[in-house]
Design a protein around this nucleic acid. Sequence first.
DNA 1: ATGACAGTTGAAAACTGA
Length: 265
Amino acid sequence: MPRFVTWNVNSIKARLANVTDWLRATKPDVVMLQEIKCTDAEFPREPFEDLGYNIAICGQKTYNGVAILSRHPMTEECRALPGDEGDSHARYMEALIELPDKASRTVVRVASIYLPNGNPAPGEKYDYKLGWMDRLHRHARALLANEEILVLGGDYNVCPTDMDVYDPEGWRNDALCLPQSRARFRKILHLGYTDAIRARHAEPGLYTFWDYQAGAWQKDHGLRIDHLLLSPQAADRLVESGVDRKPRGKEKPSDHVPVWCDLEI
DNA sequence: ATGACAGTTGAAAACTGA
């Protein structure tokens, strides 16, 4: 059954061994990567091609950058979030994946999303975040009209509820937890998307990020900010989802871990 | 709490992140 993953790797070059080890062990079908922190030309293609992946890259020097890996045929559909021609950050891309099924093939649209952090709030960076979320809302609404199997995966930089934060009071005024951030995230969900983790898991403490500082990992001071949002046609096919904490405990880890879901195709 | 920690750039210290 095809597995879809989102993972903010915090530099694909620094994370090469950590990421390829995990791919070898778990063999996911599609991986939406964020914060690759390199240009298209600098992306280390060979190690991923050797593992059987096609690669679509939307990179940028030093900062941001998203990519999609697929074990199945893939065509790139777009390299930017519509709505602001002046936005030069590499934070959004879409691809169509052709999955084999019993009859012929099933097409799945996936997006890799790196939503702005927004700190400090209030300020210019927070305004950019909220504007970006408004654009994402408009685009997510337009995509629903296609009635496709669609997975919007990424680092949303939003903790949807206090359940998703180890210390809600301490994070009350952070851009990841502010009411305006949460309201915009909910507004996207309420278009008709399903949070793949919450559709299968009700418990608190399902974190996807732990800061490198202050022993956050050892103390399990984490946040849930990486999400897989499913269109109704994708949610119909959701079988299981999860967060894989293992890579965070290995050598040279990203501060985020992979979030996955299995769709019956 | 001034900062911790990590990556990039570029060659030291600044910037960014969450």
